[in-house]
Amino acid sequence: MAREQFQNLSEQMYYILLSLWEEQCGADISRRVIELSRGRVRIGPGTLYTLLGRFEEQKIIRQTVCEGRKRYYIITEKGRQMLITEYRRLQALVREGAPYLEKEENQNE
């Protein structure tokens, strides 16, 4: 499956990586995702924990500091490249869909 190899990121994966552009701990990531998505995307602690584990395994993010049970993470170069690729893919989707879908939307309005 493509998603298992992180070739296409889900919304939640995308926002987690985006929030890790700066060093964050688990609770901060959750809050940052809500902030970045303007409340549209909310990530549960179980999902966040699992995805952080998978990202770390694939070296997409790395742990920076471990203060007791609090762990801080940041995105790696591999993760940045992955996020940029995903961003370009999403841009291409919007660009290629725009001539048809924007016209449709304007008509509906």
């Binding site: 998603r3 939640q12 959750s30 909310r42 549960g44 179980g46 999902t47 699992t50 995805l51």
Partner: peptide
């Protein structure tokens, strides 16, 4: 409180 698991695909895999 946000649900513990918010990704149905991950839940399915587990």
């Amino acid at each position: 409180a946000i649900e513990v698991e918010t990704d149905p695909e991950l839940r399915f895999q587990h």
